[in-house]
C-alpha cells in the first residue's frame, strides 16, 4: 500500500496539471451538493422556523420524526429515490434517473431533515427572546418567521454547513441514482469508491484529501463571511 505522502503528491499533481477529468468531477460534486443544499434550505429553513414557532397537536411527534430523519442511511434514500425515478416507478416519465438532477434530489432528501431539525432548534431558542417584542409589533407567530430567519443567520450558517458536509461526503445515495457514469454523474465520492474497488488505494486517498480540502475551503469561506458580520452584532 502506498504511503499517505505519495497519495497526496499523486492527487495534487493531477490537480496542478488541471487534469480535465478531475476538474470535471470536482465541479460536478460542488454543483450537485450546492444545489441540493440550496434547495434543502429553501424548503428546510422556513419549515424549521415554522415548526419552531407554531403550536399544533402532534407537534411533538413531528419533531421526533424530523430529528430521526437526520439519521437516514444514504443507501436507503438512494434506493427510495431510485424506485421513484425508475422507468418502472411513478416518476419515471421525468427521465431523471442517472442524471445529476436525480443526485440532487437524493442529496436534498438527505439534507432537508438536518436543515429542518437544526434550524428549528436555533430559531426556537431565539424566538423566546424575540416573541414578545415581535408580537407587540402586531406580527403573528408565522409572520415573524422571516424576521427570525434573518436574526438567526449566524447560527443558520452552521446549519447550512452541516447540510453541505452531509451532501458532499455521501456516496451511498448518489451512486445508486446517479450510476457513477463517467463524465455524466461521476462525483468525488463515487470516484473514490471506484478507485478503491480498482485497488488504487493511493489515488482514492488522494481524492479523499482533495475532498477534505474542498470542504475546508467552503467552511473557511463561510466562516470568514460570518466572522466579519457576527463580531459587529455581538
Amino acid at each position: 500500500m502506498q504511503d499517505f505522502g505519495g497519495a497526496f503528491v499523486e492527487a495534487f499533481s493531477r490537480v496542478l496539471a488541471a487534469d480535465a477529468d478531475l476538474v470535471e468531477i470536482v465541479v460536478l460534486s460542488l454543483r450537485v451538493s450546492l444545489a441540493a443544499v440550496g434547495i434543502a434550505c429553501l424548503i428546510g429553513l422556513p419549515l424549521g422556523a415554522a415548526l419552531a414557532v407554531a403550536r399544533f397537536p402532534g407537534r411533538g411527534v413531528v419533531l421526533v420524526l424530523v430529528n430521526a430523519l437526520m439519521g437516514l442511511p444514504p443507501v436507503v434514500v438512494g434506493l427510495a429515490v431510485y424506485l421513484l425515478l425508475s422507468n418502472a416507478g411513478p416518476m419515471g416519465v421525468l427521465q431523471l434517473l442517472y442524471t445529476p438532477a436525480a443526485m440532487i434530489v437524493a442529496q436534498c432528501v438527505l439534507v432537508t431533515p438536518i436543515v429542518v431539525a437544526l434550524s428549528r432548534q436555533i430559531i426556537e431558542s431565539l424566538h423566546q427572546e424575540y416573541d414578545e417584542q415581535l408580537r407587540s409589533m402586531g406580527l403573528s407567530r408565522l409572520q415573524a418567521v422571516p424576521t427570525l430567519l434573518w436574526e438567526a443567520r449566524f447560527g443558520l450558517l452552521t446549519v447550512i454547513l452541516a447540510g453541505f458536509g452531509r451532501a458532499i461526503a455521501e456516496v451511498g445515495a448518489v451512486i445508486i441514482v446517479g450510476g457513477n457514469i463517467n463524465h455524466v454523474t461521476r462525483v468525488m465520492t463515487t470516484t473514490i469508491a471506484l478507485e478503491t474497488s480498482k485497488g488504487n488505494l493511493g489515488l482514492a486517498l488522494g481524492l479523499g484529501m482533495i475532498l477534505l480540502v474542498l470542504a475546508i475551503g467552503v467552511n473557511a469561506a463561510v466562516m470568514v463571511l460570518r466572522g466579519a458580520d457576527r463580531t459587529a452584532h455581538a
Binding site: E129, Y130, E132, L139, T147, W150, E151, H233
Partner: peptide, 24 residues
C-alpha cells in the same frame, strides 16, 4: 406601542432596526 424595561433589538444596524419596524 410598548417599550420594555430591557429592549430587544434586532441584530442589525440602528437604522435597520427602524427600517424593519416601519416595514412591519
Amino acid at each position: 406601542a410598548i417599550v420594555m424595561q430591557r429592549p430587544v433589538l434586532l441584530r442589525r444596524s440602528v437604522a435597520a432596526n427602524l427600517e424593519h419596524a416601519l416595514a412591519v
